[in-house]
Write a protein that binds this DNA or RNA. Structure first.
Length: 426
DNA sequence: AATCCACAGGAAGCCCGGGAAC
DNA sequence: GTTCCCGGGCTTCCTGTGGATT
């Protein structure tokens, strides 16, 4: 192949995408189809304080990819726009508890946010004259000091702080519910300002870890985001496809198939969009002018594969060695793989790479764990007189597993190992 | 019917790192 | 800082077991 033609194919073939950004998870659409009811409820609850009523806290629950975050962001944005003419300004703060996940960091972020707002409104000198610091450092202060700073900055003006805590379960799991307790209690001490907490979670179980007082005050209002069904997903995909794909490049049934796949996985719209995008990217890479259902199928396989490779790559090294043993045996052996074989190879691998050799008892557990993860399949079988064991097969292509494991253990083949006799002569 | 293989998998306890409590 | 406690990874020791073989 001449290097001259290297880019020809890519440039000459017609583009498939108009703008693929609209298919990425980072893009928040203006319009959220099939979430009208939830958005309406959200708006109804959040707008109450603008009419002088006491704000309610709000808890939102729904599986991943059901539009929780997008809906909240959307409503909060609208609310802020409307509130310019209301007696009480709305100041939304969005915090993702996956990132900001301790009491201190949350309070510090809030304090700094409202300090900034104060400066915006009155100028730096005035704010400094009130004895506020330039900013709250992200570490170092006593927590109650940070809290007080936030409190004062907030209560300086009549405003409604809408504090959105996304993935709130992460916070509670890591740092407990003390922050939530403090935040939900604030309203009784605030004079001019008010706060409204919006908690978002995809795990309903975490409520059990909360202090009952926090739980009841956080879930004064609750909104559930049900999964999208296949029809709704199809509708969403169609809208986005129109924005991101060139007209007519999507083959028959492409969107339906993406929707069907995602509907099976608890109606995750994010997954559906990924699928649609990757299918297009595969077609593009091939240099064809249309994405078909075959591309969707391949995109689906690719996504599954990527997920699996990631799981294998992050396995602890002992598990990797066990898995690698299975891979080597799969490549070399025609006979059934059983626990004993795996352990023998595993020991040889350990010795070669200088790792501690675990007991067979432990390796047996590791095998079960790999089975649970779906990387291998281990079935207990009885060979009568010849004992009872697990029969093991690899659930993923050996090359994939190899690639993911080998970066840590560069071993070429089973021949390079010194194995016990009875194994080598197969 | 009894035996016996090659493990499965439960129970108890050790060791270690990390976080909470003092 | 020290002490205490907890959980995870691991070992040791153990009992249990399905079915081909005797």
């Amino acid at each position: 192949m001449s290097s001259e033609g290297l880019f020809d194919m890519l440039l000459v073939s017609k583009p498939i995408f108009k703008n693929r950004e609209y298919l990425r998870p980072s893009y928040t659409p203006e319009e959220l189809p099939h979430r009208g009811e939830q958005i309406h409820q959200l708006a109804r609850i959040l707008v109450a304080p603008l009419r002088g009523e006491t704000p309610s806290n709000l808890f939102i629950y729904g599986k991943t990819g059901t539009g929780k975050t997008a809906s909240v962001k959307h409503v909060v944005k609208e609310l802020k726009r409307v509130s310019d003419h209301a007696p009480r300004m709305v100041e939304p703060v969005y915090l993702n508890c996956e990132v900001v996940n301790t009491q201190y960091r949350i309070l510090a972020t809030l304090a700094n946010t409202f300090l900034d707002k104060l400066r915006e409104r009155y100028g730096r000198e005035y704010v400094n004259s009130l004895g506020f610091p330039e900013s709250v450092p992200m570490t170092g202060w006593p927590t109650d000091e940070v809290y007080r700073c936030f409190f004062r900055a907030l209560d300086h003006d009549p405003q409604l702080a809408v504090i959105v805590l996304d993935e709130i379960d992460r916070l509670v799991l890591k740092s407990g519910d003390e922050v939530l307790y403090n935040l939900t209690r604030m309203n009784s001490d605030l004079i001019k300002a008010k706060v409204s907490i919006v908690g978002i979670s995809n795990d309903l179980n975490f409520m059990n870890y909360l202090d009952p007082r926090v739980r009841s005050s956080l879930s004064e209002e609750e909104i559930v985001f049900p999964p999208y069904n296949a029809l709704q997903l199809k509708d969403i995909l169609e809208k986005r496809a129109e924005m991101s794909y060139v007209d007519g490049v999507l083959g028959d049934g492409v969107i339906s198939l993406c929707a069907a796949h995602a509907a099976r996985e608890h109606g995750d719209a994010r997954r559906a969009l990924d699928l649609l995008r990757i299918a297009g990217e595969l077609a593009e890479r091939e240099g064809v002018e249309m994405a078909t259902v075959t591309h969707v199928r391949r995109a689906f396989e690719k996504m599954e594969k990527d997920k699996m490779v990631e799981v294998v790559r992050t396995l602890p090294s002992q598990s990797k060695l066990v898995l690698f043993s299975v891979v080597l045996l799969t490549e070399r052996n025609s006979r059934k793989i059983v626990t004993g074989d795996v352990y023998a190879v595993y020991r040889a691998l350990c010795r070669q790479s200088g790792l501690d050799v675990l007991t067979q008892r432990r390796v047996s557990d590791l095998i079960s764990e790999l089975d649970m993860l779906g990387i291998i399949n281990a079935q207990i079988i009885s060979k009568g007189r010849y004992g009872r064991t697990k029969e093991i097969t690899l659930s993923i292509p050996p090359i994939q597993a190899r690639a993911a494991v080998q970066e840590e253990h560069p071993i070429d083949s089973i021949e390079s190992l010194q194995l016990p006799r009875q194994l080598t002569l197969v």
